[in-house]
Every structure is written in C-alpha cells, then in structure tokens.
Amino acid sequence: MVDVSQARGAEGPAISMKSRLSSYALPIFLIALIAVSGIVSPAFLSTSNISNMLLQVAPLGIVVIGQAFVIILRGLDLSVSSVMATAAVIATGFSGQNSDVLSILLIAVGIGIATGLVNGWLVTKRSVSPFLATLATMIVLQGFRFAYTQGAPSGNVPPLFRLIGSSTWHGVPYNMMLLVVLAVVFGVVLAKSRFGREVYITGGNPTTARLLGINADRVTIIGYVISGALAAIAGLVLSGYVGIVDNWVGRGFELDSIVAAVMGGISLSGGQGGILGGLFGAAILVVVFNAVLLFGLPVQLQIIIKGMVIVLAAAFYVRRRI
C-alpha cells in the first residue's frame, strides 16, 4: 500500500516547481515573441527599433495602470481614449511654449478627474453599467472636443512635451522613465496601502466590502478618477510623441488597454490581478503591432496575426492559473 503522506510529499515539490515556473509565463511569452520576431526580421532587434517600441509602450502602459484599478473594481473604462485626445488637443491650444506646460497639465488632468468622477457617479449612484457610463462620457467628450476645435485642431505641442514624449536619455526614453515612476507609485498603492486592500475587497465582493465598513462607492469612484487622470497624462505624453495632434489621438487605446490588462491577469470579474501583469500585456501588444508592421504584411493579415497572438497569450495565462 502506498503511503498517502509519501505520495503528497513526492507530489509537493513538483507542484511547487510548476507553480514557480507558471508565475513567469507572461514574461516567457514576451521573450519568446521578441526572439521569434528577431529571427524573422533582424531589424526588429536594432537599437532604433527597440527604442521606438519603448516610446510606444509608455503611453499605453500609463493608461493600463489606470485601467487596472477600474477592472479590479469590476468595471472598465471606455472613455480613456477620448480623455487622451482631449488632453492632446489642450496641449496644442496655447502658445506652444514651455511656460504653458503647468496650465496645460492642470486643465488636462482636471478634465480627466472630472470624467472619472462622472463615470464613478454614474456607476455607483445611478447603477449604470460601466460599459454604458464610460461610452456615454467618451461620446460627450468627443462632442465638446469637436466643438472646441471646429473639427481641425491647430497649434504646437510645447517643447517639454516633445522632449518627454519622443526623446531619450542614453537610449532610455523619458516617457518610459515616467511610466516606471507611475507604475511604482500606483503599484505600491495597490499592493501595500489600505486603499489598495479596499480596492481588492470591493472588486472581489462589494457586499462583503460594505459589511466590513468599506465605502465601496467611494473606492469605486476613486478608481475611475485615477483612470481618468492617468489617461490625461498619457494623452499629453502621446501628443509629445506624435507631434501633430488631431481629434483622434489615442484612438483604440480603450480596447488595447483592456486587452493588455486582461492578458496580464487582471480578472474582469474583479478582485484579482496587478499592475505589473498589465504592463507585460501592454508590452506584448506593442511588440505584436511593431512586428507585423516591420514584416510588411498585408493589413488584413496583420489584424489576424494580432488577434491570434492575443488569444495565445491570454490562453497561456489562463492555463497557468488552472
């Protein structure tokens, strides 16, 4: 007869090793994706292309940080792209000098915070679904933006935004440095602070949160405010990267940020995940977008490959959680 305790003892190390390896599934997938892309096209691993990818991942990563809070709280934020575009339009609405940077930052972040407050109020106080609430604010912001610009934004992005959005220091983009700072700050808030614990408890079960004395509505509203504020910052960074602003700057970031967050292990059912995983998801998306363009593939095939990689990465993550 086999000793049950011996069987468990033999199985234990194997499970432990499997668990340890599975925790690196997403980074392994990213490294493999980079390696395969480099083999197919050596230009992919050139210094200039790597620097370009880092420049591209920063704005998306900043949005993903805010989206992470909202998704952990059982929501989603479709208004982030419209907040980004509005912030970018504001960046060109002044004299184009560095003396206007503080005013631009305050107005843009203020609009992001106001959008987050409206989203949070609709979701918590009016019981509107996050999809409809954030879709509505997205459309309203578009309307205000088109009315303000008359459909054709004009003006110059201040040099400081150009520096942060498109320049590097010893090969490291300034916008990537900003992303790292924001990721560390909000990562600590989410993982170590009392508010972070309230976010996870509220996202896991709002009823339990209320029984524990947590103001679930307040926590949810703050989550949307964080998302709106970070989307505004990302819009300013992106305006510095592209240089020329139109009414659709940041278009598609609402879906890309959600996909990156979910791919990184942030559960749509709430209460699970972290910022680091979401950032890995953002990096995977940027690598895929860059690779299919670099390979010169037809547009239709590009879309198919992007979708396949997203599905594979998501399946890889889900498999390691089982």
Rank of each mutant, 00 (worst) to 15 (best):
D3I: 10
A7E: 15
I15P: 00
S19R: 13
Y24M: 12
F29I: 09
I31H: 10
S37I: 05
G38F: 10
S41P: 00
S51F: 07
L55Y: 07
Q56T: 03
Q56A: 11
L60M: 07
V64T: 12
V64I: 09
V70R: 05
I71K: 08
I72F: 14
R74T: 04
V83L: 05
G93A: 15
S103I: 15
L105G: 09
L106H: 13
L106C: 14
G112A: 10
V118Y: 00
W121F: 12
R126H: 11
V128N: 00
T137D: 00
L141G: 02
G143W: 06
A147S: 11
A147L: 14
Q150T: 09
N156H: 13
N156I: 11
L163G: 05
I164D: 05
G165N: 12
W169F: 15
H170A: 15
G171R: 13
G171K: 13
P173K: 08
P173Q: 11
M177C: 10
L179R: 04
L182H: 10
L190R: 05
S193P: 05
T202K: 04
G204V: 08
N205K: 01
P206V: 00
T208C: 06
R210L: 03
R210K: 12
L211K: 07
I214M: 05
I222A: 10
G223Q: 03
A229G: 14
V237A: 11
L238E: 13
Y241P: 03
V245D: 08
N247Y: 04
W248M: 08
E254T: 02
E254N: 02
S257H: 04
I258W: 00
I266E: 00
G273A: 04
G273P: 08
G277I: 04
F280N: 01
G281N: 07
G281Y: 03
A282Q: 02
A283I: 08
I284G: 04
V287A: 09
N290P: 07
L297E: 06
Y317N: 14
R319F: 09
